[in-house]
Amino acid sequence: MSYEAIIFDLDNTLLNFEMCERQAILGALEDCAVSLDLNEVSETIFLQVFETYNSQYWRQPETFSPSELIEMSYRSTLAQLDIQTDQISNLSQSFWHIFNHFGAMEPDVNEVLTVLALNYRLAVITNGFVSAQLPRMQAARIEHFFEEIVVSEAIGFAKPSPEIFHYTLSRLNLTPAEVLYVGDSLKHDYAGATQVKIDFCYYNRKNQNLPQEVKPKFMISDLLNLLELFN
């Protein structure tokens, strides 16, 4: 392959977002002595309700800070499940601390990055907050692999906006033809990369059927497949 660099998405491509979030949601409850058992609520139900509110509130990241968004999610979840506590602010702080220091990765990430780094320049483009994304990469001990780590908050543009891809290309001093982008999201990663004519490798981690109009350059279900493609 003639690529000079491989650029990765972060969440659910390199880091397992669902596992990190689950650890933070339940870990904060434990830290703040909020017992689901005493309230006869299962972990599964709590997670489902929390994630429903959380996904709703995180559509407003420009309006609220991360801690405020998490606090709103706990407050709404606890109210719906009729769980009484005066620890909501502490729950938010605990969640954010755990989430930012828990580096659960997708399978084989270290091996894949170690091998690819021998022949390719590596970078990351991720939506999110600098205060979360960089510490999580550090917790996973993968930040040293990457020449550039571009976080949407830092530059004011988020995927699928073409600006965040153009910015990263300029930082690498490369053209779209010299880069491959690897990500798990058709909405953010595929749409953004294809807008700027960057070849896209779809990490189809859940083996979903693709819409007929979606045509990534490559598709993998396991990150180790990258080594078969490029080494």
Score class of each variant (00 low, 15 high):
residue 177 A to E: 15
residue 120 Y to A: 05
residue 87 Q to M: 12
residue 174 L to P: 07
residue 182 V to C: 03
residue 174 L to W: 07
residue 144 H to M: 09
residue 63 T to Y: 00
residue 175 T to M: 10
residue 213 E to L: 06
residue 214 V to Q: 08
residue 55 S to N: 14
residue 43 E to P: 11
residue 217 K to M: 10
residue 153 E to R: 13
residue 11 D to L: 11
residue 212 Q to C: 07
residue 21 E to N: 09
residue 162 P to T: 10
residue 216 P to L: 03
residue 61 P to K: 01
residue 95 F to N: 07
residue 193 A to H: 06
residue 127 N to L: 09
residue 22 R to L: 14
residue 228 E to W: 04
residue 32 C to S: 12
residue 104 A to W: 03
residue 29 L to M: 06
residue 131 S to C: 09
residue 219 M to K: 13
residue 68 E to Q: 14
residue 118 L to W: 07
residue 17 F to G: 09
residue 171 R to F: 00
residue 12 N to F: 04
residue 21 E to W: 04
residue 212 Q to G: 08
residue 2 S to D: 14
residue 83 I to T: 09
residue 179 V to W: 07
residue 10 L to G: 04
residue 123 A to R: 05
residue 197 K to Y: 12
residue 27 G to Q: 05
residue 106 E to Y: 00
residue 140 A to P: 01
residue 114 T to W: 00
residue 52 T to Q: 12
residue 79 A to E: 13
residue 78 L to H: 05
residue 82 D to P: 00
residue 146 F to W: 04
residue 136 R to V: 08
residue 28 A to M: 11
residue 49 V to E: 13
residue 108 D to R: 03
residue 11 D to N: 13
residue 180 L to S: 06
residue 82 D to L: 10
residue 122 L to V: 11
residue 125 I to T: 08
residue 177 A to F: 07
residue 176 P to G: 07
residue 71 E to Y: 11
residue 196 V to D: 04
residue 78 L to P: 02
residue 30 E to C: 08
residue 182 V to W: 00
residue 15 L to M: 08
residue 203 Y to S: 02
residue 44 T to I: 14
residue 178 E to N: 12
residue 137 M to S: 04
residue 3 Y to L: 13
residue 141 R to W: 11
residue 111 E to A: 09
residue 18 E to G: 14
residue 65 S to Q: 15
residue 20 C to F: 03
residue 67 S to V: 14
residue 55 S to A: 15
residue 67 S to A: 12
residue 39 N to L: 02
residue 200 F to P: 08
residue 164 I to V: 14
residue 219 M to L: 12
residue 65 S to D: 14
residue 173 N to M: 07
residue 35 S to T: 13
residue 122 L to F: 03
residue 166 H to G: 09
residue 115 V to E: 12
residue 138 Q to N: 14
residue 57 Y to D: 07
residue 184 D to W: 00
residue 224 L to V: 04
residue 4 E to Y: 10
residue 134 L to Q: 09
residue 92 S to K: 02
residue 76 S to Y: 04
residue 74 Y to D: 04
